[in-house]
Amino acid sequence: MKNSAKIIMLFFLSIIATACKKEEKSPSYHKGEMTILTDESFKSVTEALAEGYMINYPETKIKVVTKKEDLGFLDLLKDKAKIIVMSRDLSAEEIKSYEEQVDLKFLPAKFAADAVIFVVPKDSPRESISIEEITQGMQSDDKAFIFDGANSSNLNFIAQKLKKQPKELKFSIIPGSKNVIEDLNKYPGKIGVIGLNTFSRPYDKESEKLKSMVKILPVEYKGKQYTADAGNLRTMNYPFTRVLYFLTNEGNFNLANGFIRYSCTQLGQMIVEKEGLQPYNIYRREVQMR
């Protein structure tokens, strides 16, 4: 009788142990480690969202790694990354590759409106730039436009807007957006092309320092000039407004999808706004007067 009781007890303990092991391996959005790949141009907002998520879920550890947009996309397809940040539109062929290799429907999680901006040194006489000047300049042997690198999100986005392939355009390179800003005055007549999020964070000392070194050029389009401010990002009137979105290969509700949900809901969108960017999902605030 005692032996039978022991056998029954061991049987139940084995069931509990197995259940615990399964529970440990089950998907969880509130604990675990993850790496996010992002282009340098929107590293700041990605890091801010990651910090916010880790504060809300202390058992999570999120590392933000900078990688050129196209290379990050390839890593996602090869399952070398679980989540990436993108800004350009994928081609029909790229969407097909994503859906076939990842085995998920292409559903970009849009979370912010950013912009590609054109900057010159503070003492430059130039006050604006037109779409025509950009189009012509990107096909000129003068290579007047300086980008932060080949395969960068800024170059990809400009090429897409001009309906060209990056290899068809002519440009100069200074690696890194910060270096573009700091070294721009060494190249008279050149125009830097960077992402707004490089220095959009208000009250941040480094952002303010970088922003003070250059003049942001309004873009002239159809006889009107547009600045990359919140209003023009919201309406997308600024010609080089771009929408940032997350892409994942995670099929269940684990850390990547938990982070995406957080970023697209009110808490995450407040962080986007504090970064000086335009939240993609706008939440109306209701106030009751008594």
Rank of each mutant, 00 (worst) to 15 (best):
P175I: 10
D103L: 10
Q269H: 12
E273H: 12
F253D: 12
S87A: 14
E59G: 03
S140H: 01
T135Q: 08
M236S: 15
Q101N: 13
F259K: 09
Q101H: 10
P108K: 08
K143W: 01
M289P: 00
R285A: 13
Y57L: 03
V287C: 03
T66E: 14
S128V: 00
N254A: 15
K78Q: 13
V119A: 02
G149F: 09
T35E: 15
E133I: 03
S87G: 15
M9D: 00
K6V: 11
F240C: 07
L49Y: 06
K2T: 12
E100S: 14
V120G: 04
S124I: 02
K21F: 13
I216P: 01
A113T: 13
K211F: 02
N151S: 14
V180P: 12
M289W: 07
L71A: 14
K222S: 11
L10Q: 06
V45W: 06
L169K: 05
G137D: 02
T227L: 12
I8L: 15
S130Q: 01
L169G: 04
A50I: 06
Q160K: 10
V85S: 05
K6D: 02
P202L: 08
S124Y: 01
I260R: 05
K25L: 14
I55R: 09
P239T: 00
T35M: 07
V102F: 05
K222C: 00
V119G: 01
Q288L: 12
A50F: 04
R201K: 15
L277Q: 08
S87Y: 05
Y226E: 04
N179Y: 13
G137L: 01
K164D: 02
G276L: 04
N154E: 14
F11T: 12
L267Y: 09
N151R: 14
K63N: 12
M270V: 07
K6I: 14
D229H: 07
K164P: 08
A50G: 06
P279R: 11
L267A: 15
R261Q: 13
E59I: 00
I181W: 05
